[in-house]
């Protein structure tokens, strides 16, 4: 209470001064350029106002629609794959593991690998998925296969794997943070009232951690939209994503208006996809509760 008043007494002059550099930078170097890009998308290469760029997307022969849909599909798959990794691991780190040393060590290792950057992280997968990579060599040694599997590298599988690898720590960190602040006694109370470990997780922990999970889901989806390195290094020719197409318009075809159009389409369709994911998730949850399907099994039912 007292701190609040010190603040009022000093007025809000300092707050304007503190906010101004970053907000002004955002306006000049973020909002205006994006607006400029949107405006550029409405012109043709000679500078005339035109909707031709958007119309060209509908031309199925260009394959751009396929690329867009593949990008969005892989983005959603990356969210799901990241959830599969992040939810159990975040819960383990935040609430289950007893030793703070182990907790710190694991977080340290994940952060260190994460900050090595997407280029190094992506390149390193080639030694795992290659014809003479770790997986093929191991399987051959174990006698499970007689010929190396060629399709591991250069395809959607490799690309999706690397994308997940590159972004899942975002989801892990946000989920971990939001689970960390949950009061242990709340989980203990749920267990005490008869919830199984799974029920306590799905009925108590997950709803409380939802804001962090949602934030993390956005943070893993967004980088997949701008993935250039992963498709190029691991995806092969058949797995182009939108980001590559945009890069090509800017650097090879030198058709900036079309490149701008593709980015606008990417942002808009990405936002719609996220909304759809949210909608489907909430509908599915509602349907589950409507039909009495429990997401967790009460312990005495077993």
């Amino acid at each position: 209470m007292s701190a609040g008043l010190v603040k009022n007494a000093r007025g809000s002059g300092w707050i304007t001064a503190a906010a101004l550099p970053w907000l002004a930078s955002l306006l000049v170097f973020f909002a205006l350029p994006l607006a400029g890009l949107a405006a550029l998308s409405l012109t043709d290469q000679s500078g005339q106002v035109s909707l031709a760029n958007y119309a060209s997307l509908a031309d199925l022969a260009s394959g751009r629609l396929d690329v867009l849909l593949r990008t969005l599909r892989i983005g959603v798959i990356v969210i799901i794959a990241s959830l599969c990794i992040a939810l159990p691991v975040a819960y383990y780190l935040a609430k289950v593991v007893q030793s703070p040393r182990i907790e710190s060590l694991i977080l340290l290792l994940v952060s260190a690998t994460f900050l090595a950057g997407p280029l190094v992280r992506t390149v390193s997968w080639r030694g795992i998925l290659g014809v003479h990579g770790l997986i093929n060599e191991s399987l051959l040694q174990l006698g499970l296969i007689s010929e190396p599997i060629l399709s591991l590298l250069y395809g959607e599988l490799a690309m999706t794997l690397a994308l997940t690898y590159n972004v899942f720590p975002f989801l892990l960190f946000t989920t971990y943070l939001s689970m960390k602040v949950i009061d242990d006694r709340i989980i203990a109370a749920a267990r005490d009232l008869g919830a199984s470990p799974a029920a306590a997780f799905f009925r108590v922990v997950l709803p409380l951690a939802a804001p962090g999970v949602v934030t993390g889901a956005v943070l893993v989806f967004v980088p997949t939209l701008s993935a250039v390195l992963e498709p190029e290094i691991l995806g092969g020719t058949s797995s182009r994503l939108m980001a590559t197409a945009i890069r090509d318009q800017f650097f090879h075809a030198h058709n900036w208006p079309l490149g701008a159009t593709l980015t606008v389409v990417l942002i808009v369709s990405g936002t719609i996809t996220l909304m759809l994911v949210a909608l489907v998730t909430s509908l599915a949850l509602r349907a589950c509760s409507h039909y009495g399907l429990s997401t967790g099994v009460p312990s005495h039912a077993k």
């Binding site: 973020f30 350029p33 994006l34 400029g36 980088p223 701008s226 890069r247 980015t263 942002i267």
Partner: peptide, 13 residues
């Protein structure tokens, strides 16, 4: 916002 979108917008600007 995807980094690539930011990159393209900044280049144009």
């Amino acid at each position: 916002v995807p980094v690539l979108v930011l990159a393209a917008a900044l280049q144009v600007a």
